[in-house]
């Protein structure tokens, strides 16, 4: 049962930004993540600013350059159902479809999805962990089978829970953020924050800032994309290992590649090692094998998640092989 809060339903973005008066004021959109966090008393909320009536933040439209602009309040279901998205950014549509459950996809927004809080059971549970201002990451010495193998900086080993985020990074999307100081655009790749930078934050959002839309540039000609997720059960589960690919081919050679992992690190994890290996090459068996091996080259598995090493290799191999076939 949630503690009480004051509630502010705004009619404009200006009102929303003005309403975000304290660090403990939270933005309410789909509510699927926030309300659960409040119920679990993970962090307090003195006020919820409901932006759900800001209809301007809803929907998908084409940009002048042939890309897409997705309003932050667009639900994951609306993403999955969008013919334009399916046609130009199939990997993103797949990723949205792999997230959560049908009902949660009907409720949850893309803005909320990229801002969601980690699912680490220590963070979500009654453990005063480092990310909640405590002194200890319980996962390093504890039950870490679902935790990170990259980017932990020996501070916090959450994995970023979002499925769409790695696909958005792969498509080189940009996040538009509005705050008290105005608007800024943040490349998706720089939107999430590693523990080394700030262990109590997951995104670059500052006090008073709201994600308003995500802009997808037009993919290069010949781009193929995919998202593949392995999980412990087939619905309603976060990634044990996920791979988002956006690969532009010229003829049978890779011209440009973006390879991003989910379930791997505290942020969507771009593996430039793999991108470098495949760029300029034909995706033949030997290139794919090298790429698969490079996926986990710098991984640092914990006591209970060593399986992620062969698993990421397997998924990378499987996905690059499928992509080579077209």
């Amino acid at each position: 049962m949630m503690p009480n809060f004051s509630y502010l339903r705004v009619n404009s973005l200006e009102q929303a930004v003005e309403g975000l008066t304290s660090p403990e004021t939270r933005v309410l959109a789909g509510g699927t993540d926030l309300l659960g966090c409040l119920r679990d008393r993970i962090f307090p909320a003195d006020k919820l600013v409901s932006i759900t009536r800001l209809d301007k933040l809803r929907g998908i439209e084409e940009t002048a350059d042939g890309g897409l602009r997705i309003g932050a309040l667009t639900t994951l279901t609306e993403l999955i159902d969008s013919p334009k998205l399916k046609e130009r950014f199939p990997g993103l549509a797949q990723a949205a479809g792999e997230a959560a459950s049908p009902q949660l996809r009907n409720q949850g927004t893309i803005g909320g999805n990229i801002c969601q809080k980690p699912r680490c059971w220590y963070y979500r549970g009654e453990f005063h962990c480092l990310r909640k201002g405590g002194t200890l990451c319980y996962a390093f010495g504890g039950e870490n089978q679902f935790h990170a193998i990259f980017g932990t900086d020996n501070k916090c080993c959450i994995v970023h829970p979002s499925d769409p985020s790695p696909a958005l990074v792969a498509f080189e999307a940009t996040v538009r953020v509005v705050g008290p100081k105005g608007t800024r655009l943040v490349p998706m790749e720089k939107f999430h924050v590693l523990p080394a930078e700030n262990v109590e934050k997951e995104t670059v959002l500052e006090q008073g800032e709201i994600v308003t839309e995500i802009v997808l540039p037009k993919p290069a000609a010949g781009t193929r994309s995919s998202y593949r997720k392995v999980r412990a059960r087939r619905s309603w589960d976060f990634a044990l290992a996920g791979v988002a690919l956006a690969v532009a081919f010229k003829g049978d050679k890779v011209e440009r590649a973006r390879v991003v992992l989910s379930g791997a690190a505290p942020v969507p994890w771009r593996v430039k090692e793999v991108e470098e290996i495949v760029t300029g090459k034909k995706l033949d068996a030997s290139t794919i094998a090298k790429a698969a091996a490079a996926t986990v080259k710098n991984a640092q598995p914990l006591e209970h998640n060593a399986y992620k090493i062969p698993l990421f290799k397997a998924v990378m191999e499987e996905q690059l092989t499928a992509m080579a076939k077209g």
Binding site: Y122, G125, F127, Y138
Partner: peptide
């Protein structure tokens, strides 16, 4: 899953 090392609490409730 019980947190056997630090707290003994149930992780996945």
């Amino acid at each position: 899953v019980l947190d056997g090392n630090e707290t003994g609490k149930m992780c996945n409730r």
